[in-house]
């Protein structure tokens, strides 16, 4: 139970993907103008993160490690994730056109998203995961749990950001700061707010 809570807290708050690790900044700044699209992007990233971990973790552990070409992990993971997203897009388009219309448009954007590659990399990195596991041995269950809650943390920050940007639209900003510069300032404030969570002792 302790490990479970540690992983959830780490993935959502203390090691949040956007604000602490600065992964996935492109969707964070690009798709956060509206809450609806931010939510769609967040859900899509969460789904792809879980699926990517489900595939890359076993491939790494049972194929790449025994055959000793695990140093190719980054290129291989990009390979696998890109193919996975392509297939997922096709499958969703066939099975549920309505889901495809709301979420499918974000899938091509995720193909080479650093947050997805980041979670696949982190769960195979012993040094990163050890601090949350507190002695328990790493397995695919923990990996998927971590990736799912990392996705939720990503969605959380996306929604906070889009909510703030929507509110900021009501105010006239100085011309030099209007638009993207304001978004950068907003992003820095959110990141500073999330620094508080790094003091949580797990």
């Amino acid at each position: 139970m302790g490990t479970f809570i540690a992983i959830v807290l780490a993935a959502v708050l203390t090691n949040n993907f956007i604000t602490v690790k600065t992964y996935g900044i492109c969707p964070f700044l690009g798709v956060s103008k509206k809450t609806s699209s931010a939510l769609g992007m967040g859900v899509a990233v969460t789904v792809v993160m879980v699926l990517a971990t489900l595939v890359t973790y076993p491939v790494y552990e049972y194929v790449m490690k025994p055959l000793k070409f695990d140093f190719l992990e980054i290129i291989f993971f990009i390979f696998i994730i890109a193919a996975l997203v392509q297939m997922l897009e096709k499958i969703i388009q066939k099975l549920s056109p309505s889901l495809y219309n709301t979420m499918g448009i974000y899938l091509p954007l995720i193909t080479t998203n650093c947050a997805v590659l980041g979670v696949a990399e982190l769960v195979i990195n012993d040094g990163t995961m050890e601090q949350f596991l507190s002695g328990a041995s790493m397995n695919i269950g923990w990996a998927v749990l971590y990736s799912f809650f990392a996705g939720l943390g990503f969605t959380l920050v996306m929604i906070i950001m889009s909510g703030m940007r929507e509110r900021l639209n009501y105010y006239k900003t100085p011309k030099a700061l209007a638009g993207f510069p304001t978004a950068m300032v907003t992003a820095s404030f959110i990141c500073m707010a999330f620094m508080v969570f790094t003091y949580i002792q797990i």
């Binding site: 390979f79 696998i80 193919a83 297939m87 096709k90 499958i91």
Partner: peptide, 26 residues
């Protein structure tokens, strides 16, 4: 050997995508 590993995995993944897009053709 590294190149062969990549070629092999590209073949496998390409075949997978082909099968999926055939099965789930819209």
């Amino acid at each position: 050997i590294v190149a062969a590993i990549f070629a092999g995995s590209a073949l496998v993944i390409g075949a997978l995508i082909l099968v999926v897009s055939k099965v789930f053709k819209v």
